[in-house]
């Protein structure tokens, strides 16, 4: 075969390969949505992270803005320290709220950021103080059954059932600031 024909075919071959790689990166992968470029790190303490894993997405208003970089245990406070790497393009106020949500009923867990109203923005190395733990499904079910049972015996008003989390001993005080009843249902 002529050398020029071979050159042409190999040229087409390599071009196809590059095009396919670009296609994979743009159309299939999330190269366009999450830049692997500049990020800044913030950390947040949680009493219970449930099934959160490193690399889980960090979302705000449903948009992926970063990734969970690292999860460690703090032996002093017995809390989980979650470091988040957030895209430099997005800045969040100092009083941003970090929640651990579940995508769907049984889906993977991710960190949701809800912006507060503070004028000072989070910087690299800052700590998010307002956090809410992961919802542990088994705990919720047992709470629900427990409150149902107590409801039946005491014939208590139905309003109590909407705040079942109050009865758990492990709940932190931080959680009470939030409108707790709405969040788990949101997540579900």
């Amino acid at each position: 075969m002529e050398r020029t024909t071979i050159d042409l075919w190999v040229g087409i071959f390599v071009a196809l390969g590059v095009a396919a790689l670009l296609g994979l990166a743009m159309k299939v992968g999330n190269l366009t949505t999450v830049s692997i470029g500049e990020t800044y790190m913030v950390s947040a303490n949680f009493e219970n992270i449930g099934g959160l894993k490193p690399r889980a997405p960090v979302k705000s208003a449903g948009v992926v803005v970063g990734r969970v970089a690292d999860i460690t245990f703090d032996p002093a406070t017995f809390e989980a320290v979650v470091s988040l790497s957030v895209d430099k393009r997005y800045s969040f106020p100092k009083d941003t709220f970090a929640n651990i949500y579940t995508a769907g009923l049984l889906g993977e867990q991710y960190v949701g950021l809800e912006a507060g109203g503070d004028e000072v923005a989070l910087k690299n190395g800052d700590k998010i103080t307002q956090t809410q733990d992961a919802i542990v499904l088994e705990k919720m079910i047992s709470q629900f059954l427990f409150s149902k049972a107590s409801e039946e015996t005491k014939d208590s008003p139905p309003a109590q059932a909407s705040t079942p989390a109050e009865s758990t001993p492990s709940d932190s005080t931080k959680m009470e600031d939030d409108a707790l009843g709405s969040n788990p249902i949101d997540a579900l």
């Binding site: 790689l21 994979l24 992968g29 949505t33």
Partner: peptide, 19 residues
């Protein structure tokens, strides 16, 4: 189909590792 794919396929950890 496409958006779920894009949300869950990581450029570096999935595509680049495959390559």
């Amino acid at each position: 189909f496409w958006s779920q794919m894009q949300a869950n396929v990581d450029w570096r950890l999935d595509i680049l590792n495959g390559v």
